[in-house]
Simulated assay, not measured.
Amino acid sequence: MYIEDDPVSFAVVQALLSGQPDVRLIRAQTGGEGVSLARSEHPDAILLDMHLPDMSGIEVVRRLSEDIAAKAFRVLLLTGDKLNIDVLKAMSLGAFEYLVKPVNREALEGALGRALAVKAGKKS
């Protein structure tokens, strides 16, 4: 799942993942919609923009913290921000990794692979 309000950013990630036959990308355009969809759709991983129209990425991670702790899914921050206090806060609340936009295919696939390997209990 990708929680992203910008249609261009979503389209870029969708194109980058289009060659992955096992990937089905669900989009949420707000943090609230993302939290709700995460709980109903049970994605393996969530890509999360840090700047959403209704709440920050930190708040999304906070609301999903019990699910993250239960290893229901891994959250990957996908943000235009370099490493900063908001990214560190989200990581401390359970986000798995962060990537800086614009992201390339290799970085995105690598991060997703690591997240899914950890979720499955494998070493990365």
Results as ranks from 00 to 15, higher is better:
His42Tyr: 14
Asp67Pro: 02
Ser65Tyr: 03
Ser124Ile: 15
Ile46Lys: 00
Leu112Tyr: 01
Ser56Pro: 04
Ala111Ile: 07
Arg74Trp: 09
Phe10Val: 01
Val60Glu: 05
Gln29Asp: 12
Glu66Pro: 06
Ser9Ala: 12
Ser9Cys: 15
Thr30Ala: 07
Val12Met: 07
Thr30Glu: 08
Glu109Gln: 13
Leu78Tyr: 00
Ser56Gly: 11
Tyr98Glu: 10
Val75Arg: 04
Ser40Glu: 09
Ala95Lys: 02
Leu52Gln: 03
Val35Trp: 03
Val12Gly: 01
Gly31Ala: 06
Ala117Met: 14
Pro43Ser: 01
Ala107Arg: 11
Ala107Ser: 15
Leu99Ser: 09
Gly31Leu: 08
Arg24Cys: 15
Val23Tyr: 08
Leu76Gln: 10
Asp81Thr: 14
Leu83Thr: 14
His51Trp: 12
Asp54Trp: 03
Asp22His: 12
Gly57Trp: 04
Arg27Gln: 14
Ser56Asn: 03
Lys122Leu: 15
Ile58Trp: 10
Ala115Lys: 07
Ile46Thr: 00
Pro53His: 00
Leu47Lys: 00
Ala38Tyr: 05
Ile46His: 00
Ser56Trp: 03
Gln14Arg: 15
Gly80Lys: 09
Ala120Phe: 09
Leu76Pro: 08
Arg114Gln: 09
Asn84Ile: 03
Val12Gln: 02
Gln14Ile: 10
Val87Ser: 05
Val8Pro: 06
Ala72Val: 13
Gly121Asp: 03
Asp44Met: 12
Tyr2Gln: 00
Lys89Ile: 15
Ala95Tyr: 03
Gln20Ile: 09
Gly32Arg: 14
Leu47His: 00
Leu112Lys: 01
Ala28His: 02
Thr30Leu: 08
Thr30Ser: 09
Val75Gln: 05
Arg24Leu: 14
Asp67Lys: 06
Leu52Cys: 03
Ser65Asn: 11
Val75Ser: 03
Asn104Tyr: 07
Glu33Ala: 10
Leu47Ser: 00
Ala45Ser: 07
Leu37Asn: 09
Arg24Thr: 12
Asp67Tyr: 02
Ala120Asp: 15
Arg62Ile: 06
Ala28Trp: 01
Arg27Tyr: 05
Ala120Pro: 10
Thr30Asn: 07
